[in-house]
């Protein structure tokens, strides 16, 4: 709409050799056309953001009563993998043994878990380098040099608290917002 009525008017009105005065009404009309055209752009842009069904499906409820110590499950949260692991005492000790200050992204295991549930580590299974899915959640997968997760794309090693220790990834695996609605149920998102 703006292109068919607005643009020629604005770009050409100056070439009228000063014979015709550009009076108020014409400027107003062209401006109205321009505003109308811009208003039409809004829904065209807005339609690309997540639709109502996608937004409604943006939380995931997970039952972890079956999750054994030392095991991890892969779940799906907002169409992305999320790793839930019940840490062994050995893994917890290993994570706490590292001085937090020495890390690339300094966070303690305590920071990354919820009080009362320090043995349940919930992280996004999305490497912070370029978004690959790290290995280590399923049994038998390569857990990397620090016994946590290992991203095979560019060799990022994460430790038992899923903190970046070696490789190109800039930050630790992201801990999503989640809450325990009961001892065995978590709601992510």
């Amino acid at each position: 709409m703006a292109t068919t009525t607005g643009n020629p008017e604005t770009s050409e009105a100056g070439t009228e050799e000063g014979v015709r005065r550009r009076d108020f009404i014409e400027i107003a009309a062209v401006s109205a056309a321009g505003i109308g055209g811009l208003a039409m752009v809004y829904p065209l842009v807005s339609q690309m953001s997540p639709s109502a069904d996608v937004l409604a499906a943006s939380t995931t409820e997970l039952d972890i009563s079956e999750l054994q110590v030392g095991q991890a499950v892969k779940a799906s949260f907002r169409k992305q993998p999320v790793f839930v692991r019940r840490l062994t005492q050995g893994e917890i000790d290993e994570a706490n043994a590292v001085a937090t200050d020495s890390l690339r992204d300094p966070e303690s295991l305590e920071d990354r878990t919820q009080p009362g549930h320090e043995d349940v580590l919930v992280v996004m299974g999305v490497c912070t380098h370029l978004g690959c899915v790290p290995l280590g959640a399923a049994t038998g997968e390569n857990k990397g040099e620090y016994n946590g997760y290992f991203c095979p794309c560019h060799g990022s090693h994460y430790d038992t608290a899923a903190r970046i220790r070696k490789g190109p990834a800039p930050t630790n695996l992201v801990v999503p917002d989640y809450t325990f609605t009961s001892d065995t149920t978590i709601v992510i998102g």
């Binding site: 709409m1 068919t4 009525t5 020629p8 008017e9 050409e12 009105a13 015709r20 014409e26 056309a33």
Partner: peptide, 17 residues
Amino acid sequence: FHPYYTAKDGFGLGVFL
């Protein structure tokens, strides 16, 4: 064509819309 018929077409477009 411009400005005479751009103005006329602009008005016509408004009625159409």
